[in-house]
Design a protein around this nucleic acid. Structure first.
Length: 747
DNA sequence: ATCCTCCCCTAC
DNA sequence: TAAGGTAGGGGAGGAT
């Protein structure tokens, strides 16, 4: 699996992917069309194309809204969202004014009123209601894992600069919006793990450590162990033996109806995998812990992700667990074709209905959740009032998102203030970079793309000189568990050379690199270091654009002119030196006339270096650049490109052969134009690249490990998400024109 | 035509 | 056990 660095250490040699999807362990999800229930209660999920706006209040600029409907609306909305089956619980919330969603609406009111005076609004009770339109709909998720997803997002719809964290309304000279330096605040994340983690050796890892081939005999089969693949084969055989022979001994064979059948259970099923195992074994069949192509007869699953469907191989058969129970009931193996989950060309229907149906069942039979062990954990989690906080505390994606947003806010504030940060180095040093007296009067852009080398690791190694140049990775895992499912957030170059990739599971990484040292996150330090770096750069110029906590662009064209610096490499080295002196972290710098060239150059600069794509080199440079490295071209687009062209092409030089019209058919007009220019090293919109970035939306998503068994749990989470969203909104001092609540359900 | 809503894709 | 977040650009297709 490709596992790129989230932090975009664009060193092509090690790893050229930096797309998020590669971190996901499970298939990429894809959402289906929104499915909404109609006015009358019953969900008709099978037909599914209808969409109803549950509540809509027209938006007026200055008037009062909610003329008649008032609070009832939020209640009703929630009611309808969760529908008939949820009525009881809803009564509580609805009646209470402190329901998170209600509060959210009220908080919009605040901000709307306070359009002119932000400070005061915070205090005042809302007399007037904001113009808010609220749509709530159900959405079925198509492919997915067996989990329910809830997403709530809010988007201000007013394009005027009424939103803003830092914005002045465009064009008029109102009082500046209250400014706030995000960086002055304590970090919102907390360190979840303390102290260094002891490196762990997995038994698997030990296998690899030894160079000599081993032969192992397991249950009559000889395995030559040369590599991980061999190891897995051995392990699978061993497991199967345990499950099907040893474990079944205590059982009496009930029948032989599944003789010559074997199954593999994919994902969560009802009954659960362990029950299926016992059933199948008791009836003469085989249970496979791993799917074995050509040997496993059937896959048992409750649903299939579309992404998964796309990868189903020729003879792979996916059927529902009912095949087992019904076959047993019938006393003979039934025709699997009646239990297919997926047939080519057919789309599975009605899972949403099924979900709610199942839901009522489990509600009716209160006692039975002991059988739903995996669900129960999630249930408890979601009931935990600190669920979201705890979740965030462990989410590396949330971490990098919030850090990036903090940095963007910081930069936006700086730009509004219009003042450079005080220089943290002697200005004399800049003057010394001038080589001669040749005044270059042309005011040209000179863009630096600054990128920290494996940021998290660098931060961690500041106080661990003993680990310099060693194999190091950052993860939540305590390292005591050799098969930890924890993901590696960032790894050192030494680790990469062993085959470790960012995003890999700790378990897998240890197989590649048994000597890997695992270190915990240092959330506070990331914030501090990142802040320092931004302050350093902002002391050179305010033409600064934040990308993330470890990556940013600056335009030093003016600076070079001002100090008569002819060689930008000198300036880049100066900046790198300053960063290193202040933060003890190495940074790489890519230099080019445009942000595009600078960005591409950074890949060649890493690690810990500088690379300049001069105008003379530009044409030649672009010929060899990889298409995949162009910003905005991910795997989907690359696949589409390959599919449409009929063969694989990888360099920009090859792409340049294609006329724009042809690209347009593949990518759509906008992207085609962009790519057409990009592959020639031309940047399309250098104009607004440097403009202040104002946030346009605020959202809160949780998409992991949520398996509801009760409606109450759904409500709990909705409340929590509503509250969280309100917090974020307040925090960023934004106003909203609309709220969107999404509930995604997958079978 | 143009806007709006929902969705996909990308980036870190 | 760990924890698939969050924001923006753009397209498709319906509503206006």
């Amino acid at each position: 699996m490709r596992s790129p660095d989230v932090f975009a250490d664009d060193d092509g040699a090690v790893n050229s992917d930096d797309s998020f999807e590669n971190f996901t362990v499970t298939p990429i999800r894809r959402r289906s069309q929104a499915i909404v229930h109609s006015e009358n209660e019953s969900f008709d999920f099978a037909t599914g194309s209808e969409q109803a706006t549950v509540i809509e209040i027209q938006q007026h600029q200055e008037t009062v809204l909610f003329e008649e409907k008032e609070d009832v609306d939020s209640e009703e909305t929630i009611n309808r969202l969760l529908d008939s089956s949820l009525e009881e619980e809803l009564e509580d919330i609805d009646c209470e004014h402190n329901d998170a969603l209600s509060k959210l609406l009220q908080s919009f009111g605040h901000r709307e009123n306070s359009n002119e005076r932000q400070e005061e609004k915070e205090e005042q009770e809302q007399e007037n209601r904001p113009n808010v339109s609220l749509d709530i709909f159900e959405q079925a998720e198509d492919n997915a894992d067996e989990e329910i997803e809830i997403q709530l997002s809010e988007e201000p719809e007013d394009d005027e600069a009424t939103l803003l964290p830092v914005a002045l309304p465009d064009g008029n000279n109102l009082e500046p919006a209250p400014k706030r330096r995000r960086l002055d605040f304590a970090p919102s994340t907390s360190s979840a793990a303390d102290g260094p983690v002891v490196p762990a050796q997995s038994d698997v890892g030990e296998y690899w450590n030894q160079n000599n081939t081993k032969t192992i005999e397991i249950h009559g089969n000889n395995f030559e162990i040369n590599n991980f693949h061999d190891y897995m084969r051995m392990k699978i055989t061993k497991l199967n033996h345990q499950v099907n022979v040893e474990k079944s001994k205590p059982f009496e064979k009930i029948s032989e109806i599944f003789k010559n059948y074997s199954v593999y259970v994919n994902g969560y099923t009802e009954p659960p995998a362990l029950v299926i195992r016992d059933l199948i074994v008791a009836h003469g069949g085989e249970y496979h812990c791993y799917y074995m192509h050509g040997r496993t007869t059937y896959n048992i699953a409750s649903s299939l992700a579309t992404a998964k469907i796309a990868t189903i191989r020729e003879k792979e058969i996916f059927i529902k667990s009912d095949w087992i129970t019904e076959s047993i009931a019938a006393g003979k193996p039934l025709d699997y074709r009646d239990f297919l989950i997926y047939e080519k060309g057919a789309q599975e229907k009605g899972r949403m209905r099924e979900f709610f149906a199942n839901n009522s069942q489990s509600q009716n039979t209160e006692e039975d959740h002991s059988t739903l062990s995996s669900s129960q954990n999630a249930f408890l989690d979601a009931r935990n009032p600190n669920f979201i906080r705890d979740y965030y505390a462990r989410s590396r994606l949330h971490l990098i998102s919030t850090l990036a947003q903090d940095m963007k806010d910081f930069v936006a504030n700086l730009k509004l203030e219009g003042k450079l940060i005080e220089k943290c180095f002697p200005e004399e040093e800049l003057k010394q970079l001038s080589e001669g007296n040749i005044k270059n009067s042309r005011n040209e852009n000179m863009v630096f793309h600054v990128d920290l080398d494996c940021f998290f690791v660098s931060v961690a190694l500041r106080d661990r000189v003993d680990l310099k140049e060693k194999e190091v990775a950052i993860t939540h895992s305590k390292g005591t568990i050799s098969n930890s499912m924890s993901e590696i957030a960032s790894c050192s170059y030494a680790a990469r050379s062993c085959g470790v990739k960012n995003g890999m599971l700790v378990r897998d990484a240890l197989q590649h690199c048994p000597n890997l040292t695992l270190l915990p996150y240092q959330f506070d330090d990331y914030v501090n270091v990142s802040q320092q770096i931004y302050e350093i750069l902002a002391s050179y110029t305010l033409e600064l654009r934040a990308v993330s906590c470890d990556e940013m662009y600056i335009n030093v064209g003016t600076l070079c002119q001002q100090y008569d610096i002819q060689d930008p490499i000198l300036l880049a080295e100066h900046i790198r030196k300053t960063i290193r002196a202040k933060t003890r972290c190495p940074a790489s710098v890519g230099i080019g006339r445009t942000s595009l060239l600078a960005r591409l150059a950074t890949r060649h600069a890493k690690p810990d270096g500088v690379y300049w794509v001069t105008e003379e080199k530009r044409i030649e440079f672009m010929l060899e650049e990889k298409i995949k490295d162009l910003p905005g071209l991910g795997y989907q687009m690359m696949d589409r490109l390959t599919a449409c062209i009929g063969k694989e092409i990888s360099t920009c030089g090859q792409l340049q052969q294609k006329p724009e019209r042809e690209l347009s058919q593949i990518f759509g007009p906008k992207l085609a134009t962009k790519i057409f220019k990009q592959c020639r090293g031309v940047e399309e919109d250098s104009e607004d690249f440097w403009k202040t970035q104002l946030r346009k939306s605020v959202s809160c998503d949780i998409n992991y490990g949520i398996r509801f068994t009760k409606r109450e749990e759904l409500l709990q989470l909705m409340r929590a998400i509503g509250a969280e969203l309100e917090r974020k909104l307040t925090d960023s001092k934004m106003m909203a024109g609309a709220i969107t609540v999404k509930l995604m359900v997958s079978g």
